[in-house]
């Protein structure tokens, strides 16, 4: 319902930021972000407005949380452990 895309702030002019979305740049308004935003920060963009700043630590933490979820499972379940073993740490695609 609300298409959001993360992007990296390149520069800021008042309430207007230039944000890089993986190679495409667009102006994004900062009116409604409730944290200070600086160049280099990541923000979540929706219809040309940043709706939040994405703390890099939280990204790491989410990934760690997922790893933890999977690890907890594999401890309980040998089957899951087998699958993780097959996939390998880099998670190469098996089906290629």
């Amino acid at each position: 319902m609300c298409l959001g895309v993360p992007g990296k702030v390149v520069s800021i002019d008042g309430l207007l930021a230039t944000v890089d979305f993986f190679g495409i740049r667009r102006n994004v308004r900062l009116d409604i972000v409730d944290e200070p935003v600086e160049p280099g920060d990541y923000v979540m963009n929706h219809v040309g407005f940043a709706i939040c700043r994405i703390p890099p630590a939280e990204v790491e933490e989410t990934l760690a949380l997922y790893e933890h979820l999977l690890a907890a499972m594999s401890k309980e379940d040998l089957l899951a452990a087998d699958i993780r073993g097959e996939i390998g740490p880099a998670g190469e695609k098996k089906n290629e």
Binding site: F22, P56, V59, E60, L63, L69, M73, D77, R84, K94
Partner: peptide, 27 residues
């Protein structure tokens, strides 16, 4: 390290997705 661009691909890793699907199956 804190590059979300690179991290983003990790959120699209088919290998981890398969493991999570297995988890759903078990649940």
């Amino acid at each position: 390290m804190s590059d979300i661009g690179g991290n983003r691909l990790q959120f699209r890793d088919p290998g981890r997705a398969a493991a999570m699907a297995e988890m759903l199956e078990r649940l």
